[in-house]
Amino acid sequence: MKKYFVVAAAALALAGQARADQMAQGKELFLSGAKPIACAVCHTLEDAGSAGAIGPNLDELKPAQEQILKVMLEGVGAMPSFAQTMSEEERAAVAAYVSSVAGQ
């Protein structure tokens, strides 16, 4: 039984580190790494220190992860699609980051 808890604790620690890594990657992409244009250029998001005024204020919108992924794939209005310029993993990192910090 004790062995089970050690394994479970190790698995939780690894999952927590993976989540932290994804959040760090998402923030970096939001700030400067997203192509064709960084999200921070157009969007306001307090956690990222961005104050863009072209796109919606993400702190007010508080979009869900699925909504962010859809918009990143398809584009909307002045926002381009990121389907060809960012990997699925990169888009998922941005969506996870934004959905977890918007409006906090």
Score class of each variant (00 low, 15 high):
41 V>A: 09
68 I>C: 04
101 V>G: 05
76 V>P: 00
38 A>R: 02
39 C>N: 07
88 E>D: 14
73 L>A: 13
95 A>Y: 00
4 Y>P: 00
57 N>W: 01
30 F>G: 01
2 K>G: 13
58 L>E: 01
20 A>M: 06
86 M>H: 02
34 A>M: 10
35 K>D: 13
15 A>C: 08
16 G>E: 04
101 V>R: 07
74 E>P: 04
24 A>C: 05
72 M>P: 02
93 A>F: 06
10 A>G: 12
59 D>C: 12
47 D>I: 00
35 K>R: 09
68 I>V: 15
15 A>S: 09
34 A>C: 06
69 L>H: 09
101 V>A: 10
40 A>F: 09
41 V>S: 05
64 A>Q: 13
63 P>E: 04
65 Q>S: 10
7 V>Y: 13
102 A>C: 07
49 G>S: 11
92 A>L: 09
30 F>C: 05
98 V>K: 01
96 A>Q: 07
104 Q>F: 04
73 L>R: 01
18 A>N: 10
6 V>T: 12
41 V>L: 10
102 A>T: 07
42 C>R: 02
64 A>D: 12
22 Q>C: 03
66 E>Y: 08
59 D>G: 09
104 Q>P: 01
6 V>D: 06
90 E>H: 03
13 A>V: 14
6 V>R: 02
76 V>A: 13
58 L>S: 01
20 A>Y: 07
103 G>K: 03
87 S>H: 03
100 S>Y: 09
95 A>H: 02
34 A>G: 06
104 Q>A: 13
8 A>V: 15
55 G>C: 12
73 L>W: 00
9 A>G: 15
35 K>F: 01
51 A>F: 07
20 A>P: 01
26 G>Y: 02
32 S>M: 06
52 G>D: 11
38 A>K: 08
26 G>T: 03
16 G>M: 03
58 L>C: 06
95 A>S: 08
50 S>Y: 11
21 D>N: 14
34 A>W: 00
52 G>A: 08
51 A>L: 05
32 S>G: 12
95 A>P: 04
6 V>Q: 08
29 L>A: 03
8 A>K: 04
24 A>E: 14
21 D>F: 08
84 Q>M: 12
99 S>N: 07
48 A>N: 04
21 D>E: 15
47 D>M: 08
12 L>V: 10
16 G>Q: 07
101 V>W: 06
69 L>A: 14
94 V>N: 00
66 E>Q: 14
5 F>L: 13
34 A>N: 03
80 P>F: 09
61 L>A: 14
73 L>D: 15
27 K>F: 14
62 K>Y: 02
3 K>G: 05
7 V>P: 05
4 Y>T: 13
88 E>H: 10
48 A>G: 12
15 A>N: 05
18 A>H: 13
59 D>E: 04
79 M>L: 12
89 E>Q: 15
19 R>L: 15
50 S>E: 06
22 Q>S: 11
17 Q>P: 00
54 I>A: 10
4 Y>C: 02
38 A>I: 01
40 A>N: 09
43 H>S: 01
61 L>K: 09
56 P>A: 12
9 A>N: 09
4 Y>H: 08
5 F>Y: 13
74 E>D: 14
58 L>R: 00
10 A>H: 01
31 L>D: 04
58 L>I: 11
37 I>D: 07
33 G>Q: 11
30 F>L: 12
48 A>L: 10
104 Q>L: 11
6 V>F: 15
23 M>R: 07
8 A>N: 05
60 E>G: 15
